[in-house]
Amino acid sequence: MIRVEGLTKRYAQNLAVDRISFEVEKGRIVGFLGPNGAGKTTTMRMLTCYMPPSAGKASVAGFDCVSQPQEVKKRIGYLPETPPLYPDMTVDEYLLFVGALKGIPAGELARRVSDVEERCAVADVKAKLISKLSKGYRQRVGLAQAIIHNPDVLILDEPTSGLDPRQIMETRDLIKGLAGDHTIILSTHILQEVEAMCEQVIVIAKGQLRAIETLDSLIARGVGAVDVEIEPREGELNFPMVKKVLEQTPGVTTVTQTGEVRNNRVRFAVESSAGHDARGDIARAVVGANLNLNELRSGLEKIYLELTGTTPAAAVPAAAEETEA
């Protein structure tokens, strides 16, 4: 559905996107993961024909983004980071305008508009001015705008940024509901988002492609490193005992404390020998030692940080403590 080959974007001095190649199959939800400034937005803008690439090729549904932009644009729905809304229009007026702009025949327009209003849960504010809407509603109107012409491909730039937790959940559900009919690329710098929604992950950093993997294989890479939070069931925390319990768990190679002991709780990063899933053993060992296991997560963060090549801020004080001990 989407094919990108050696895509490059060069601004005067700096290289925003550096020879990225990937392919996305039809009907997939793909997460575009990378830190801020990695080149996610630039790549998306090239895919949507907003700007031409400096070098390389991109094609959507078999149409080239440079030589057949009109065909590509017809098949793409795009939600930029800030939804492109006109504050002095009502939701109805806005969607009618966008619908006409995207080439929906006049006879079908009204029906399509009420369709997407229903689908994106904005029907109750359809007569309101967009300037009066809350951020969550604006985001959903932005989504409605992107899907109004029923495009093959949806490109969403940080669709949940700046929303409250409830709105994030609603937006994620909405996007997941759109998969299947549409191929979706969404960018994010939040790991949980990828975990919650995507089937495939494309990691980029500093304009370069770092990994293309399915979510499962990424998680499989993550099981070797687990983050745990432990709290004694009663009494004071016995730090050496807790650490010993973890270290003696079969398969575990290293145990590193991350962060300070706070509220009688302690966090560790536990690594096990390659390819070994020690999560069950860790859980059993901790509970067996009369401790509460507050949290156990596979260390996707670690892989993310490794892939994107940035140093985690939290790991620095932890390392310092280790040398002191």
Binding site: C49, Y50, P84, Y86, Q145
Partner: peptide, 14 residues
């Protein structure tokens, strides 16, 4: 200023 230029430039109109 509003960013709506992104909508216009990514719509199938010349």
């Amino acid at each position: 200023r509003q960013g709506t230029i992104e909508l216009l430039l990514t719509s199938p109109i010349s």
